[in-house]
Deep mutational scan, measured.
Amino acid sequence: RIRTTFTSAQLKELERVFAETHYPDIYTREELALKIDLTEARVQVWFQNRRAKFRK
């Protein structure tokens, strides 16, 4: 699998949801994935990585 490059619009939306909750449920992730045209798996991994970055 190649590395996913996020558009600024996708990042803006991901960060907006992250500001609300660091642990979005499956429904939130799936809805977000559809909205920004990514797979739910990519959204899930983005949140994992974002939480790791947040803890640092």
Rank of each mutant, 00 (worst) to 15 (best):
T7F: 02
R3M: 13
R1E: 14
E30F: 06
Q10Y: 00
S8G: 10
K53Y: 06
F18S: 05
A41M: 06
I2P: 10
W46T: 01
A19P: 02
A52P: 00
Y27G: 15
F47N: 00
V45P: 05
T7V: 04
Q10T: 03
Y27W: 10
R3D: 15
E15G: 01
T28E: 09
K53I: 14
Y23D: 10
Y27Q: 15
Q10H: 01
V43W: 01
A9V: 11
I36Q: 05
D25H: 03
K35C: 07
I2L: 09
E30Q: 12
K56P: 04
F18D: 00
K56S: 15
R42K: 15
Q10I: 05
A9G: 09
A9P: 07
I2N: 14
D37I: 02
P24I: 07
R1G: 10
I36D: 02
F47I: 00
E40C: 03
A19C: 10
F18Y: 10
Q10M: 04
Y27K: 15
L11I: 12
E15C: 06
L14Y: 00
D37C: 12
E40N: 06
A41Q: 13
A33F: 00
K53H: 09
R1L: 14
N49G: 08
E30P: 06
D37V: 06
F18L: 02
R29L: 13
E15S: 00
V43N: 05
L34N: 12
Q48K: 14
E13F: 02
R3T: 14
V45I: 11
F6S: 05
E20W: 09
T39L: 04
K12M: 10
E20F: 11
A41E: 12
E40M: 06
A33V: 03
T5P: 12
K56N: 12
L34S: 13
R16E: 10
T21M: 04
A19S: 10
F6V: 12
L38H: 04
K12E: 11
A41L: 08
L34P: 01
T21W: 03
P24H: 04
A19I: 06
N49I: 07
W46F: 02
E30I: 07
W46N: 06
V43R: 02
R42I: 15
Q48G: 06
A52M: 11
T28V: 12
R29V: 12
E20D: 09
N49L: 10
V17P: 01
K53C: 07
S8C: 09
V43K: 05
R29E: 00
S8W: 07
L38K: 05
T21K: 01
P24N: 04
F54H: 15
V17S: 05
D37M: 05
A33T: 01
R29M: 13
V17E: 00
V17A: 09
E31M: 07
A41H: 08
I36Y: 10
L14P: 00
Q10A: 05
I26F: 13
A19L: 10
T5S: 12
R29F: 01
Q10G: 00
Y27D: 14
Q10L: 04
F47L: 06
T21A: 06
L11Q: 09
Q44F: 10
R29I: 15
K12L: 10
F6K: 03
R3I: 13
T39G: 04
F6A: 03
A33R: 06
F18W: 13
R50P: 01
A33G: 09
F6L: 14
F18Q: 01
D25E: 04
L34R: 15
T21Q: 08
A9C: 06
A9R: 10
I36N: 08
F47G: 00
K35T: 07
F47K: 06
R55C: 12
V17R: 00
Y27V: 15
L38T: 14
I36E: 01
R3H: 08
E40V: 09
I36A: 10
I2D: 15
I36W: 09
Q48I: 06
V45L: 12
